[in-house]
Amino acid sequence: MDSLKFDLAEIPLRTVNTFLHQEAPGQGVRKVLITNPDGAHNIAVGLDFPVEIEIVGHAGYYAGGMNKQASITVTGSAGTGVAENMMSGRVHVKGFASNGAGASAHGGLLVIEGDAGLRCGISLKGGDIVVGGSVGSFSAFMAQAGRMVICGDAGDALGDSLYEAVLYVKGSIKSLGADARIEPMAEADLATVKALLAAAGPAFDQYAPQDFKRVASARSLYHWNADANQEY
């Protein structure tokens, strides 16, 4: 039994998630197909074993949240908080993703082929995110570690109060957030973008690393400036 199919029109999601948590790792399940997700929340959350999951259709909130090791593909769109707090593995959304995609992900790779909503990669803590379309406002807010590659445009306040995460943007940036600045692309940056585009899959072959801008923290908010005008 290395390949399984669950139809969420027939079987409750809780049964599927419980099986994926408790029984599947011991049974050597390697491939799981989930059909008729119909926007259900929490599909394939909290997995912790190497398995390929394909969700055929539109997923609701928090799909693939807290993922460890698993490789989860959503063929449609994903709701709020896809791959939120991912630790490792991969979550791949073929359509668009709503707000807070990849929020606070510690590791792993989140690929979104369409657009991502607002606050994509907020508080990123070491995960990587590659977005084929554009990202909404306040993306990478307070992102601490990890990389984001944005092949479309970025909305307002990109990278506000950024720590050590680095963002690469191909399109226009509506505005940078406080302390975020555009920096020159070094050789290492080109290699990073190339590797992340390659990891994201064939849909990203069309992009060239030299077309991206690097956005990183100016680090001026790292230390309290007692001399600054403190009127807020």
Partner: peptide
Amino acid sequence: SEFRSLAHLPDIKNAKVFEPAP
């Protein structure tokens, strides 16, 4: 508000589904 309220509509699989921008 969420896709789960649209999932039953006729021929939804071929409809254009998108998230309206702020």
